[in-house]
Design a protein around this nucleic acid. Structure first.
Lengths: 207, 207
DNA sequence: TTTAACTAATACAAATTGGGTGATATTATC
DNA sequence: GATAATATCACCCAATTTGTATTAGTTAAA
């Protein structure tokens, strides 16, 4: 069986070498090439077409997130996994948006790293526990919402792109009542437009 | 050390018994009580205050998602994990919104189930590989967006709740130009309001 | 019983949208 | 190099939506 081709993009020499040793110590994976920055990796990714790319977030030149974006453009089948010290939620979400299929923290031991590659290979999405928690908490709806049940219902319809009139029809209330609810939502969320209400709702996990 | 208290809510007798055996076979966890439906579990959850609740999705009476919502209300510290045969993305997202900290597929073997409990205990978010992939793909941005780079930029500002004028200021363009972009976005997305554009963008993972 | 929520209505002002039109400069793409 | 797409800016008008303010009856919950 062919081994899965892995590239490693990591500017720290010691880590890059460690990762290479770990990966090459497996039966299923082998390191095709390692890179010290994103530019050199993306320059030839259309030729290397790796199965897996292990990418550091903090890189000289273009960062890991940009690197992943370009890799996914030039070689869509390459599964990218972020390997970093940062567990800032914003970075996590940016990486996932860019197309990362996994995100692990650098203090993971070599077994966890190998396990991540295996998970990737099995169609999974390897994440360190704290990252998985960040991701999953992003979905949780805030129970301490300042909105009433009805207002939450209206807000959900707003998030579906419904107009005043459409909302009133959907809830079997008058257009004016729908507007009343929306106005109360605005007051409670301290906003003054549907899109701002949605932005606030998203930020506070209200819907 | 105290063992973590686990409750199991599962209507199928054989599965419920299996789970109980598996959990009680560990050193760290013990089954406090098992339930055949959500009602009976939530009726006493304020007293049992379990550390972990394993919840089936398909239950007689209230379903697993409703059950989780109530559990999280009455005992916020209880970590809920869905154990089900369903891997429908909509159900997954609903469960996560309701407050589930994990989601595993029933065909998981007993080792995976134990591992999930351990992950939960370690602050992780246990998910079967295919579920993790569903969750993570929900973040990925569609590369085949019909929108131009600039239009995507504008759409992002809309998603932040910005008005025409605020967008024009942010991008150092005139209000009319911002309007042009927004109008072009509407045409491409086949919508006619900001919130509808956001709904469509969310659906198609454009931002 | 007091409060909060839901409902409904009226009215004016502001913002947004739909439709059209035209133009220039830059960038990609072929 | 030519063509197409994109980004920029500007103006018009009419219709709709939305924002804001205010009032008020009914119902549900604390």
């Amino acid at each position: 069986m062919f081994k899965k081709k892995v590239i490693i993009i990591e500017d720290q020499d010691d880590l890059r070498d460690s990762f290479e040793l770990i990966v090459n110590g497996t039966k299923k994976f082998r390191v095709l090439k390692t890179y010290i920055d994103g530019e050199s990796a993306v320059a030839e990714v259309h030729k290397t077409l790796p199965d897996i790319a292990m990418v550091d977030l903090e890189l000289p030149g273009i960062n890991g997130i940009e690197t992943i974006k370009i890799i996914k453009e030039k070689s869509p089948k390459t599964e990218c996994i972020i390997v970093t010290v940062y567990d800032d939620p914003n970075l996590v979400f940016k990486a996932l948006k860019a197309g990362a299929a996994g995100y692990i923290i650098k203090d993971a031991n070599y077994l966890e790293i190998i396990d991540s590659l295996i998970q990737l290979d099995n169609g999974g999405a390897p994440m360190s526990p704290q990252i998985a928690r960040i991701v999953i908490q992003n979905f949780h709806i805030n129970e301490d919402s300042p909105l009433s049940k009805r207002e939450t219902e209206v807000l959900e319809l707003i998030s579906e792109g419904k107009s005043y009139f459409q909302i009133s029809e959907e809830l079997f209330i008058s257009k004016d009542t729908a507007r009343s609810h929306i106005r109360n939502i605005y007051i409670k969320l301290n906003v003054n437009s549907k899109s701002a209400a949605l932005a606030k709702a998203k930020k506070d996990h209200l819907i």
